[in-house]
Design a protein around this nucleic acid. Structure first.
Length: 675
DNA sequence: GTTAGTTCTGTTTTT
DNA sequence: CAGAACTAAC
């Protein structure tokens, strides 16, 4: 319980932020300025001054951040679980409210949360019936627009796009259908979780007031990543007492492409009069040269709040820019450098990170690290619960839980193959629509539907019976893992996997995943206070990271986006080339270049002691070899902080190319190091 | 209804 | 080039 000692360690600005308890507070926290420490200490401090822990709410974007914060606060407070502040993601927080206030909502019990792939399936289904849609657009594109609409308006009702291009016409047409169908299926998508709570608060002001009285102090992390809807929710919740503290950095806003609105930072001061603004600019993470490089790059953004990071540490080594002949060599170079630094300095594998723009770039680095027997962990990428076979099984569980969930039923209807083809499924769906029945009910009476062959009808109704039978068992919330095993055996899922993946070792791997899935259900049952199938599926939907992911050691391989919030003594940012950073596709979006620059800034500021930026001369893209151009961001790094290292053997290089290469632009000495 | 062959596409990602 | 998505032939 060393809050006082913790506070004593803070700098003046940080202290001010911690102790400014009442009224709106905007903390502009630069990279590495001790942001997390401020929020956690502030939470602990509030509670220590006598504020009931349960009336403090801290909202984060990821479960990982929430877990970390929880851990730090508990160790600071040594508090028992029952009297702890609420630390949660926006989505989990809203889900809790929805579940509690169910009676005020149009939702039935056991509603399902749809993930992106289920949203797409639903939409594809709807598009079949819409005549103006002549397969002009991909479902994903339309869904993207629907998502943007949902996240910019603040009500599920109003949907004026007012534009008249083809896409808008289709979106206007399909959006209400999409929303209506979700409700019919007793399902919600991620955006709905927040929107429904807002709707609830608007319809039932007494409820809003009850929650306002409950959560008297609200804190928000990564505020620059909030979207319009999240901000609206915060405004509602904090509307009475205005004890809202947001922490963010506009320079680290890298999610505008999915609806984040960094403008929320600017609006904050207008919406909350008397806002106290505190800037945290002292950086505790990076050495001087790294910081200079970061400042040099971000300075080129026009749209930003002026701030400049500084450190009391020394300059440290220069930022190294290295060029490799191609992608393979780039990976070898990085692996070699890691081995070299491990032996020459007192570093461990955990101290290194390789950061890239897109997840595909991890491959050559994984290969090179493996060849050199360097342990590594890849962050992100396809999550374990996103694997096909897991989602298949999850769909079984979903239709067992929620009998209106046509989308899940559709997914597993013929999986494993049981002779229910698309023609029959189409007829069943048409019938369901006509008779206003759920698909599962329709399955139950398949024998009465025209055009369904007798033996198909039998298979269809058998499936419906099976699902109904399992429902009774699963809803008891007991021995669910055992029941899932029985289900897997009954549908002969393993046989299906073996025929689907013909190679033995691939199939075995998939079977391992399936076993792990059963295990995770078992684990859930054993650790949860009151386990339920719905609870398990919600965990799957809202917190779908395997725990092992977070504590594996070795060199970290991570995308620029996922690197936000992390720090490493030695960082390699790789593929620092034009059309990669900035990504060529990003330039299509307005503000795209500036967002890419912020991404570069995020990457640079992950480094504590040493930073390497690598690029190549040639890169194989989509199968063919093309010459690469160094990222324009490299030129924005002040000349005084960089060292250039060219690792090519001059014997192999083409001398004419040499003249026009990047060296001409660079006013610095070259230093050839061992590779 | 199923399977094999063909065409297309190619960021970032949490919930 | 590789994986996904779609189409056409059994």
């Amino acid at each position: 319980m060393d809050i006082d000692r913790e506070i004593a360690r803070l700098n003046l600005r940080q202290k001010e932020a911690v102790m400014y308890a009442d009224g709106p507070l905007l903390i502009l926290a630069g990279a590495g300025s001790g942001k997390t420490r401020v929020i956690t200490t502030r939470t602990a401090y509030l509670i220590r001054t006598g504020i009931r822990a349960g009336s403090v709410l801290a909202v984060t974007f990821t479960n990982k951040a929430a877990r970390e914060m929880k851990g730090r606060i508990t160790s600071l407070l040594k508090t028992e679980k029952r009297n702890a502040p609420i630390i949660s993601t926006f989505h989990s927080f809203c889900l809790r409210i929805l579940r509690k206030e169910m009676k005020y909502l149009g939702l039935r019990k056991n509603f399902t949360i749809y993930d992106t792939s289920e949203q797409v399936s639903l939409l594809k289904n709807l598009l079949r019936d819409i005549t103006v849609y002549r397969k002009q657009f991909k479902a994903e594109v339309i869904l993207d627009r629907i998502g943007k609409l949902k996240n910019s308006s603040t009500s599920l009702q109003d949907l004026n796009t007012s534009k008249q291009d083809d896409l808008s016409i289709i979106v206007d047409r399909v959006y209400p259908e999409y929303q209506k169908t979700l409700r019919a299926l007793n399902a919600v998508d991620f955006d709905d979780l927040l929107l429904l709570v807002i709707e609830l608060f608007r319809k039932e002001p007494h409820l809003l007031e009850a929650y306002q009285d409950r959560f008297r102090y609200i804190m928000v992390d990564e505020y620059q990543d909030t979207n319009r809807v999240q901000y609206t929710l915060l405004k509602l919740l904090a509307g009475k007492r205005k004890n809202l503290c947001v922490v963010g950095d506009d320079d680290q806003s890298v999610y505008a492409w999915r609806g984040a609105n960094p403008g929320n930072i600017l609006d904050f001061e207008n919406d909350f009069t008397g806002t106290k603004v505190i800037r945290l600019e002292q950086n505790y993470r990076s050495m001087g040269n790294i910081l200079e490089a970061a400042n040099g790059v971000i300075r080129n953004n026009r749209k930003r709040m002026e701030k400049s990071l500084w450190t009391s540490e020394g300059m440290g080594p220069g930022v190294k820019i290295m060029r490799a002949p191609d992608g393979e060599e780039e990976a070898k170079l990085v692996a070699g450098k890691i081995l070299h630094l491990i032996t020459s300095k007192d570093l461990s594998y955990d101290d290194f990170a390789i950061i890239y723009r897109a997840n595909i770039f991890s491959r050559p680095f994984e290969a090179a690290l493996r060849r050199n027997r360097i342990p590594y962990t890849v962050v992100g990428g396809t999550s374990y619960f996103d694997r096909k076979e897991i989602k298949d099984l999850a769909s079984y569980l979903k239709i067992i839980l929620n009998r209106y969930d046509d989308i899940s039923l559709l997914r597993i209807a013929n999986l494993p193959r049981r002779g229910i083809g698309n023609t029959s499924l189409g007829r069943l769906q048409d019938y369901a629509e006509q008779e206003k029945l759920s698909l599962l009910e329709t399955f139950g009476r398949a024998d009465k539907i025209h055009g369904i062959p007798v033996q198909t009808a039998k298979k269809v109704s058998d499936l419906a019976d099976m699902i109904d039978n399992y429902r009774a068992g699963f809803l008891k919330g007991k021995e669910m893992a055992m029941q899932l095993s029985r289900l897997i055996a009954e549908i002969d899922f393993i046989k299906h996997i073996r025929s689907f993946y013909k190679t033995e070792d691939v199939a075995l791997k998939r079977i391992d995943y399936i076993n792990a899935f059963v295990e995770s259900l078992k684990y859930y049952e054993e650790t949860e206070d009151s386990p339920s199938l719905q609870g398990f599926l919600e965990m799957l939907a809202l917190d779908n990271k395997p725990e092992s992911d977070e504590k594996k050691g070795g060199v970290t391989l991570v995308s620029l986006h996922s690197s936000k919030g992390l720090e490493f003594p030695v960082v390699f940012i790789v593929g620092v080339e034009d059309e990669i950073i900035p990504h060529r596709k990003s330039l299509l979006d307005k503000g795209g270049l500036e967002e890419e620059r912020r991404l570069m800034y995020v990457g640079i500021t992950r480094a504590m002691k040493e930073l390497f930026l690598t690029h190549t001369k040639y890169r194989v893209r989509y199968g063919s070899k093309t010459s690469s151009i160094p990222s324009p961001f490299l030129e924005e790094i002040p000349a005084g902080v960089v060292e250039y290292i060219d690792t090519e053997n001059s014997a192999e290089t083409d001398k004419t190319e040499e003249k026009i290469d990047i060296r001409a632009d660079y006013a610095r000495v070259m230093e050839i190091l061992d590779s």
